[in-house]
Design a protein around this nucleic acid. Structure first.
Length: 276
DNA sequence: AGCTGGTCCTGATGGC
DNA sequence: TGCCATCAGGACCAGC
């Protein structure tokens, strides 16, 4: 599920529920996520006020008084909101509850690739945390432009699709949106990254921004029962131009969309519209 | 059985 | 040659 748009949709939904409220408790039912949840996390965050809810790449940043609680949704995670007096019994994949104000925020993650950890303010900016330190630029940062991208791709011989996915150049572009962005930019996914001209970098920058922005507007991709009972289901997948459409006609030229595998992940593209 | 939205780690590769 | 960034592959899980 979660690429940048899904995390941003989550952030926007959770922010009004948690900002300014006190964490009254944190209940861990299953600490074995990607990394074990530290036993003392609950004691650390309990009693602290949530100053704001931020995002860096696909990481959700819970800015508390004495540091940052960081959550990541991995491949299959989601946060759901329940009123404290109306929360259903937790299911087998409901690993964590954060009780904040009148609500319970419940982290559900069947595949357990998600994460939840603490970064104390005394250790400096969250940006310097090892898990976040090597992240690329935010796609909506005005400094992300053709020159930046062209420069960043120097020395990268890997296919552009895989460089986008790696997240050390620009963050937030996961498997679905990498295919969609390259289609919009009319760039073939196997093109060695360093071979992209400045003009094509310009197109790619714009395409990444447009695709991510559209996905955020549509509530992300296939996020059923996403945030609380009134949470919207994502609509983006129905708007995908190439992702999951192998064999179907290209919406631009009518040629059949192709599916290939790059780094064990599926890539979709139009062999006519997208050139190396 | 084989596919699925992410990321980290290891060991190999190859340019300077 | 040696260093070091980059790259490829496997690993982690459960559900459809």
């Amino acid at each position: 599920m979660p690429e940048l748009p899904e995390v941003e949709v989550t952030r926007r939904a959770l922010a009004p529920v948690v900002e300014g409220r006190i964490v009254s408790s944190l209940i861990v039912r299953e600490p074995r996520l990607r990394w074990p949840i530290a036993p003392r996390l609950a004691a650390t965050v309990t009693g602290q006020q949530v100053r704001s809810l931020g995002r860096r790449g696909k990481y959700l940043l819970w800015e508390l008084e004495r540091g940052t609680m960081v959550s990541h949704l991995g491949m299959s995670g989601s946060w759901r909101v329940h009123r404290q007096d109306a929360a259903p019994a937790p299911g087998p994949h409901d690993h964590v509850d954060v009780v904040v104000g009148e609500h319970i925020l419940r982290l559900t993650d069947p595949r357990r690739f998600g994460a939840l950890f603490w970064h104390g303010a005394a250790r400096g900016s969250i940006e310097r945390h090892p898990r976040l330190a090597k992240l690329g630029i935010e796609p909506f940062d005005p400094r992300f432009d053709a020159s930046f991208l062209h420069h960043a791709l120097r020395g990268r011989r890997a296919p552009i699709k895989q460089v986008l996915l790696a997240g050390d150049v620009v963050v937030g572009v996961g498997n679905i949106y990498a295919s969609e962005s390259l289609f919009r930019a009319r760039i073939h996914p196997t093109t060695p990254a360093l071979r992209l001209s400045r003009l094509r970098c310009e197109r790619l920058v714009q395409a990444v921004r447009e695709v991510l922005a559209a996905a955020i507007e549509l509530g992300g991709s296939s996020l059923r029962d996403y945030v609380g009972t009134d949470g919207a289901e994502g609509e983006f997948i129905g708007n995908a131009k190439v992702y999951g459409r192998a064999g179907e006609p290209c919406v631009v030229c009518g040629r059949k969309i192709k599916r290939i595998v790059q780094g064990q992940r599926a890539t979709y593209y139009c062999p006519n519209c997208q050139r190396r």
